[in-house]
């Protein structure tokens, strides 16, 4: 579905990676290895070279905003441009349902300044899911969450995978890829390599 070929920026790459329909892929690696830069490069937020194709169509034929609606990236630190939470969401029909799925049904009436890190993380995910993207790039989506919230978010992600969404996530939790049945990669020094799960577990 998403084919990344020789993706390169001044700091990382070249990286090749293919994401299949309805699959989950996990990347781990030390801080500063370039994991977030890799995700940023895929959504064209930093200057980069190489080709990326979504369902056979080249990224350069998409206007950048369209590309980012189809291939959606949720950074580890989310940005909030308005004081009220509700201003950050489009009034789609699935909004209430999505907020409930992450345990934040009340949140749309709140103020951003009073949100906890974990609440921001979940709301930023909801904001991206509203776009109904074909590919979802998640940077440590559950790093600030308590175990019940992690379970809720993972359930939501599994539902998306089941409906054909391809997910690429960065995680430091060694169990998370197992729970999401993800294929694993390791990133170090700006290079990506396949990771044998059994080898890592032993």
């Amino acid at each position: 579905m998403l084919i990344i070929d020789e993706l390169k920026t001044s700091l990382i790459g070249p990286i090749d990676l293919t994401l299949e329909v309805g699959s989950c892929t996990a990347i781990s690696g030390p801080s500063g290895a370039g994991k977030s830069l890799f995700l940023r490069a895929i959504v064209d937020l930093d200057e980069n070279s190489g080709t990326i194709k979504l369902n056979g169509r080249d990224r350069n034929t998409f206007p950048a905003p369209d590309w980012r609606r189809n291939v959606s990236y949720v950074p580890a630190e989310s940005g909030w441009w308005s004081e009220r939470v509700e201003d950050h969401f489009r009034p789609t029909s699935d909004l209430v349902e999505l907020l409930a799925a992450v345990g934040l049904e009340e949140a749309s009436g709140w103020e951003v300044s009073r949100l906890s890190t974990g609440e921001r993380q979940r709301l930023a995910l909801v904001r991206a899911l509203q776009l109904d993207p074909e590919v979802l790039l998640l940077d440590e989506p559950t790093s600030a969450l308590d175990p019940p919230s992690v379970a809720k978010v993972e359930l939501l992600l599994k539902e998306r995978i089941a409906t054909g969404c391809a997910i690429l996530l960065v995680t430091h939790d060694p169990e998370q890829p197992v729970r999401l049945k993800a294929s694993c990669f390791h990133m170090a020094g700006g290079k990506l390599r396949e990771h044998d799960l059994h080898e890592a577990a032993s």
Binding site: L45, R68, S72, P75, G79, W81, R127
Partner: peptide, 22 residues
């Protein structure tokens, strides 16, 4: 100072003009 705010909007598929409007 507002890099993350602008990029958050760009990531939701807004254009550069929309994202920098505030």
């Amino acid at each position: 100072k507002g890099k993350s705010e602008v990029e958050a909007q760009l990531l939701l598929g807004r254009t550069r003009w929309e994202a920098t409007r505030p």
